[in-house]
Nucleic acid binder design. Structure first.
Lengths: 178, 178
DNA sequence: GTTTACATGTAAGCTGTTACATGATTAC
DNA sequence: GTAATCATGTAACAGCTTACATGTAAAC
């Protein structure tokens, strides 16, 4: 899902600014998508030009807050983009990349990687738990529960079986360095 | 982890061609990284120019198989790249993006998304189970077990709690369309 | 024979990040 | 008063995908 569609997605729940979209993406979509400001502003310009969104209030002063509203055409476009989604998922994991080459790392680095991953997972877990489930559609709740299930499994692995494997990695590294 | 480092990673286990690297990435690294041929060949050229890898056999005929070998400098570079990894992970999920906007979809689309995701997860599960764990380092085994734990949790969620939520989505969509 | 897999490489183009440039408003 | 947050926008650059262009070798 590209940045433009993500913007439409945020705006489908209410009017906001470019900056507000970035925050909303971070708060609501982080478990399945990302968007930086440098991508959001050009995307908003394109969407406005294409009639999918409009500026309400139009300050026309530079550096002033511009609030966007989705148009019916924009809603249609969002629905089309949602229908065009497939069941794929890709993971980009510096964590696993590092662990894959654990035999080239120091033990400290291996422990740091695992600790950082656990911290990241816990943070994400906290964030998801803090979202107001009552105010959501069933679809939104679905994505949160799915992510929670996956995160819980990852934490569980790292805290139980993971520790044992890290010990094994240390043993292996030790013996191969001798 | 960029494509160049992925190439070094493959070559650290043995000499092969650009085409062979793509296959190896697909077979061994798919759970945490991706690389297409259009990215691999330029990366190999840069790595060769930088002295991190060398061509062995050098056919010099165009369109002939060129086998690459990692140099000691390349091994150092791989080790540095591994040590530079952090504990982060990002998910790009057209699946969850679609489900998030389930209220804009037909029931068929929702079922298709879930079915496709389950099929993808099962395929990945099969691939990981088929890898020869005996011939691996502890680090490699770690990444596989971690991914297996996460995948199993995702499948479990989709087959149990997931079904109920899909039914709830259908109920919600039905009532909001009336 | 013909399809599939193997094999290399280039180039256009898309998408996105980071850094830059600028300034207002709010909280402490 | 000063630091953090809010706020917009541009531009350089990175990185990758897809399509193009070409051809060989093995399997069926």
């Amino acid at each position: 899902m590209d940045v433009g569609t993500l913007c439409l997605g945020v705006l489908s729940f209410g009017d906001t600014s470019g900056y507000g979209i970035r925050k909303a993406v971070e708060d609501w979509f982080r478990h399945f998508g990302q968007a930086s400001l440098g991508a959001i502003y050009p995307a908003l310009a394109k969407l406005t030009a294409g009639g999918a969104i409009e500026v309400i209030g139009a300050p026309d002063a530079p550096l002033e807050k511009r609030v966007f509203r989705i148009t019916p055409a924009g809603r249609q476009r969002l629905a089309d983009a949602a229908a065009a989604c497939d069941g794929s998922e890709t993971v980009r994991s510096p964590f696993l990349a590092g662990m894959f080459f654990a035999h080239l790392l120091t033990m400290d680095d291996v422990h740091r990687l695992v600790d950082e991953r656990i911290a990241g997972l816990r943070g994400e877990q906290r964030r998801l738990r803090g979202l107001p489930a009552e105010a959501m559609t069933e679809g939104q709740r679905f994505t949160i529960r799915y992510s929670q299930a996956v995160i819980a499994a990852a934490i569980n692995f790292l805290e139980h079986e993971g520790r044992a494997i890290v010990t094994a990695i240390e043993r292996e590294n030790l013996s191969s360095n001798q």
